[in-house]
């Protein structure tokens, strides 16, 4: 009986997993598989590496934030449980001294309550991450017509998640022979695209696409306070981890809660199994 129960559970899983593994290959669009990279937050017990998130925040703040908004993030998020600057001393992240000072470095627009004038003031923990551009046309105008996407949920909005982001950031390569690269565009094998029309006749069409973002990271671009070597790979890895956290700040809570739920359900199932055996003992079926 138990064997049957497992059998149908497995069948159910197989039925559901089918379409998942069917893949999403497109007719002409290609992209390289994201690089295989190990994250501390993988698996059912994975947790974010706090030091890595702090470094990642620094990369975002000093590099990415000059073009990319993160509209869903508030400074207080940095100090909440599971966040990069969480400190158990401050149950309320709005009181967190580090978060306060990080927010204070940023100017945000506000309305003067006395005069109604638009003013600039230092941000507080309750403020949103300030967007670099006031609106979409302004963002496009400053970026050669391309719109730098909001990064709040970027790690969930692309197949491969943080590995995809890491691959894009580290994946800029010299265009292969025979490729015509348009002005203000860069070839990246991890970017989805169709290179057929960009290639000279007869040349092999490579995977990947053009991206409007120039290679954002260079060795030594960000100075890490904890002495971590500031290589492109390290910067990319840390900011990808930071974006993974930003896309789901409650991930650690989810996994911790899940562990309790799984233990509860397993014990409950075992108890029900024995109750079932006991109640049906005298029924031939």
């Amino acid at each position: 009986m138990l064997r049957k129960a497992f059998a149908f559970a497995a069948l159910g899983l197989a039925l559901m997993a089918g379409p998942l593994f069917a893949g999403q290959a497109l007719a002409a669009t290609t992209q390289a598989e994201p690089r295989d990279i190990h994250w501390s937050f993988e698996g059912p017990f994975g947790k974010f590496d706090k030091a890595q998130l702090q470094r990642g925040y620094k990369v975002y703040r000093e590099v990415c934030s000059s073009c990319h908004s993160m509209d869903l993030l508030y400074f207080r998020n940095l100090g909440q449980k599971g966040g990069p600057f969480y400190d158990p001393k401050y149950a309320n992240p709005n009181d967190n001294a580090v978060v306060k000072s990080l927010a204070h470095d940023i100017q945000v627009k506000d309305i003067d309550s006395d005069t109604g004038d638009v003013i600039s003031r230092p941000a507080g923990p309750a403020d949103k991450f300030a967007a670099p551009f006031p609106n979409e046309p302004a963002a496009r105008a400053s970026n050669g017509g391309a719109l730098p996407p909001d990064l709040s949920v970027m790690a969930k909005a692309r197949e491969g998640g943080p590995a995809y982001i890491y691959s894009i950031l580290t994946g800029f390569v010299a265009p292969p022979k025979g490729m015509t690269v348009p002005e203000d565009k860069y070839y990246n094998p991890y970017m989805p695209g169709d290179m057929t029309s960009a290639m000279a006749k007869g040349a092999k069409v490579p995977e990947g696409g053009f991206i409007a973002m120039p290679p954002p990271l260079t060795d030594g671009k960000v100075t890490f306070d904890d002495g971590t070597k500031s290589t492109v790979a390290n910067e990319a890895r840390d900011v990808s981890a930071f974006l993974a956290w930003a896309a789901e700040p409650k991930m650690e809570e989810r996994k911790a809660f899940g562990l309790g739920a799984m233990i509860y359900l397993l014990i409950f199932s075992v108890l029900l199994w024995f109750s079932y055996k006991k109640i049906w003992k005298n029924v031939s079926h």
Partner: peptide
């Protein structure tokens, strides 16, 4: 109690699979 307990057991096993998705593979 015959089918309440048998259904109950099956529901519990089903919930385990459901929980795997909710807590570990939500997307």
């Amino acid at each position: 109690p015959y089918y309440t307990v048998k259904d109950g057991f099956a529901i519990s096993v089903f919930l385990i699979m459901y929980a795997v998705f909710v807590f570990y593979l939500p997307d």
